[in-house]
Amino acid sequence: MNWIPLTNLEQLENIGQADGFSVIFKHSTRCSVSLMAKKKFEHDWDAIPAETSIYFLDLISNREVSNTIAQKFSVHHESPQLLLIKNGECVYETSHGEISAEELAEQMAYQA
């Protein structure tokens, strides 16, 4: 799998209009907890269906996109944070040490 850099509001609008699942990983480049969560997630992300679009948001560089995510998907801002979007709605979110690719895959199967 590869990260899709999330850098602008147009991409966010496309995620909101997409059919099926999209994943957003919000990451702070200034936070060691965020780095650890990212590494753990990447280590296990083979558990996630290969066709899943996984977006990576550097929230330090893209603060406007980060703020819009909180508003658009009605979630409280966290960092690191993982959101599962299905048909334009956030159906699952978690943060910090709770971020898990395996748990995300389970949520996708449950939400299907």
Rank of each mutant, 00 (worst) to 15 (best):
Q81R: 08
S32C: 10
R30L: 12
H43L: 02
A101D: 06
Y110T: 14
S95K: 05
C31W: 03
G20V: 05
E103Y: 05
V75G: 09
A109D: 08
Q17N: 12
W45A: 00
A70F: 10
S34K: 10
D44N: 13
S66E: 07
S28Q: 10
H27P: 08
I69Y: 02
E51I: 09
T94K: 01
A37N: 11
A37Q: 04
L83K: 03
E103M: 07
W45K: 11
N2F: 06
E64G: 00
V33E: 07
Q11R: 01
N67C: 10
E102L: 11
V33S: 13
A112Q: 12
D58S: 08
E64P: 00
S28P: 07
N14K: 15
L12M: 01
K38G: 09
S34G: 11
V91T: 07
F41V: 06
W3Y: 05
D58Q: 14
L6W: 02
E10R: 01
T68F: 07
W3A: 01
S34Y: 05
F41M: 03
A47I: 12
T94F: 01
L104T: 15
Y110Q: 11
S22E: 06
L59E: 14
N14Q: 15
K86A: 13
G88V: 10
F41T: 11
D58G: 05
W45G: 08
E93I: 04
I4E: 02
P5R: 00
Q11P: 13
I85K: 02
Y110E: 08
E13I: 06
S53N: 13
W45V: 04
F25Q: 03
K40D: 14
Q111F: 04
L104G: 10
A112K: 13
A50L: 14
Y110A: 12
S79C: 08
T29P: 13
F25T: 03
A50H: 09
P5F: 05
M1H: 04
L57E: 04
S66Q: 03
S28V: 06
N2R: 03
V75P: 10
A109P: 00
N8W: 02
K86V: 09
A18Q: 11
E64T: 02
Q17G: 08
E106K: 14
D58A: 07
I69K: 15
S53A: 15
Q107I: 00
K72D: 12
V65T: 06
V75M: 04
Y92C: 09
N67F: 04
S22Q: 10
L9K: 11
D58P: 08
Q81Y: 05
V33F: 09
R30Q: 15
S66A: 08
I24A: 09
N8H: 11
Q107Y: 01
D44M: 07
S53T: 09
I85A: 08
S66N: 15
C31Y: 06
S74W: 00
L35T: 14
W3V: 01
T68M: 07
A47F: 14
C90E: 15
T29R: 11
I54D: 02
E13T: 12
N62S: 06
M1R: 00
N8I: 03
K40H: 15
A105W: 02
A109K: 14
F25P: 07
A50R: 03
C90G: 10
